[in-house]
């Protein structure tokens, strides 16, 4: 450290010397931190820049590092594509249905796991955690077969069912934590005051876990919205695709060959609903992950 290499003035009091050294070190750390932020943030900046630049700038020999002119053309290209609006609707339907279903069903199970003592509880917990870790690829083979037998191939219902396979388990698990955080004393007080068991649930536990329900729902929303691997197999019909499939198809289609502006505009539009939700609920995201929700 600097104290060893540079001889400090002998007269300076010890404490001061330490403070100076620490301030100098903090300055160095700050610079390093800013460099890391710049490197990490650059791809996101590049996405925004590419999406908002007039496309003629994107194919020059030297890229523009600063915005020169703003153009909405890449966005309007995507927004006015009927396929995009169709896929957006499909994504909204699938995502909303599987989140709502998982929340309703999962809340009941979470209540059982958080508030009751019963035989087989340990087993139930292990099952709920264990199924979260089954790779989606492994489930996809037989699910695809099963949905075909039920005549649900290429249908929004089929995709919703498949998505519930990964939203339901972590919904149960995260909600369990939120319910367990509501003090039991409140339940007792309600019972003493003459509430029935159902009223206790309805008037005490439900309102107090509402933020948890919202946070878990948002988490599930993000997972389902971002899903690609299953949709790519289960939804092959053009009219049934999700926005993720739209994005990847856009990136692969020869007609959009080097339309990087359009691809980045589509990327931005596809990620916007989750980025906004994520930024609002970011506090819960880390908590949810470390509390045992596995799907990243």
């Amino acid at each position: 450290m600097s104290a060893v290499t540079t001889p400090a003035p002998a007269l300076a009091p010890k404490r001061n010397r330490g403070a100076v050294r620490r301030r100098r070190a903090t300055f160095g750390w700050n610079i390093l931190g800013l460099v890391i932020a710049a490197v990490m943030g650059f791809p996101v900046y590049w996405l925004l820049l590419t999406a908002t630049e007039p496309t003629r700038y994107l194919q020059g020999t030297t890229p523009n590092f600063l915005p020169k002119a703003f153009s909405f053309s890449s966005f309007s290209e995507v927004i006015h594509d009927p396929q995009f609006t169709q896929d957006l609707t499909n994504s909204l339907i699938i995502t909303a249905s599987c989140v709502v279903f998982s929340l309703v069903v999962g809340f009941l199970a979470a209540l059982a796991l958080a508030r009751f003592r019963f035989k087989g509880k340990g087993l139930a917990i292990i099952i709920v955690m264990g199924v979260q870790m089954v790779p989606l690829i492994a489930l996809l083979f037989p699910l695809n077969d099963m949905l075909a037998k039920l005549h649900l191939s290429d249908s929004l219902i089929g995709a919703t069912i498949a998505y519930i396979a990964f939203t339901a388990p972590f919904t149960v698990w995260t909600l369990r934590t939120f319910i367990a955080n509501v003090p039991r004393e409140l339940d007792e007080a309600a019972l003493v005051d003459g509430c029935t068991r159902f009223q206790t649930f309805y008037k005490v536990i439900l309102p107090l876990t509402l933020p948890g329900l919202v946070a878990t729902g948002v988490f599930g929303w993000i997972q389902a919205w971002n899903e690609f691997l299953m949709a790519n197999i289960l939804l092959t019909d053009n009219s049934k695709q999700t926005v993720q499939l739209y994005l990847v198809t856009f990136g692969n289609s020869p007609t959009h060959g080097a339309d990087w502006g359009g691809l980045m505009a589509a990327s931005l539009l596809v990620s916007l609903p989750v980025v906004i939700l994520f930024l609002i609920f970011q506090r819960w995201m880390a908590a949810g992950l470390t509390a045992g929700a596995v799907k990243g």
């Binding site: 800013l34 996405l47 690609f228 990136g251």
Partner: peptide
Amino acid sequence: IMTVVFMFVWSVPTTVSTELFRWL
């Protein structure tokens, strides 16, 4: 500043980040 940048990076879906890096 670092946390804000991280939050944006974190929230990007992998489909989007992959297309983005393909462009980079």
